[in-house]
Amino acid sequence: MLLRATLLVSFGLIASAAPAGAQLLTVDHPGQYTQEDIARGSLLYNAQCFACHGRDGDQISGVDLRRGQFRRAQSDEDLAQTITRGTPGGMPPFKLDPAELTGIVAFIRAGFDTSASVKVGSAARGKSLFDGKGECATCHRVAGRGPRKAPDLSDIGLARAPAMLERSVRDPSSALQPINRPVRIVTADGTTIRGRRLNEDTHTVQIIDDRERLLSIPKKGLRSFDVITESAMPAYAGKLSDDEIADIVAFLLTLRRQ
């Protein structure tokens, strides 16, 4: 019953987010944008939009282009109009020809993902693999279930494009975000703390340790503080078949809880 309620809520979210929300190419709009358009848009984005919106499209307050969060635009036409007309006191108008405009919109709607090779399988099978054979659920938390050791994946389908997800499954260390790197800390009294980095500055580091505690640790006086570049997660390339990985990617793409 609880699970059912959770699922319903998730569905509600997806439905309500749909008009304004991220519309990943592979999930909602198969074939709507051509690879050619997306590639053209990518080049144009880097030349025209990058300076203000940033690499990940999230540098303007209240706007996250890659995740489909806009201030005004809902439809592709709205997006195109915002680009060509600008916004009052904000974004300047851009003069683009129709093909360029289509490209930019395609690139944004594709979640900035220019790769064409990602295979997306069955989300239902992916869920079984996630909970079973893949043992993903033994470390990852989804929608309030599971341990907090590894990153919570409840919104990973919004946060990552398919190519990035696939890479994370096949070869986690190559896709491990530096901020998420495991840390090993030995305090002055010899206590060892292991965890995952959440934030860091010159004087302190914030981690979640292997007992799921949020700790803010002053660096001064530590016996050692190591940041490990290798992911704690096993690489699944070779462990799972390509089809199974595609299924897991499909399942991860459905995780879009806000």
């Binding site: 309620a5 959770t6 309500s16 938390r141 907090r148 409840s154 799921e212 809880r257 806000q258």
Partner: peptide
């Protein structure tokens, strides 16, 4: 919101 991970647990209109 999960107090430890900062992820939402439920969301109701």
């Amino acid at each position: 919101i999960d107090r430890t991970t900062g992820r939402s647990l439920w969301d109701v209109p």
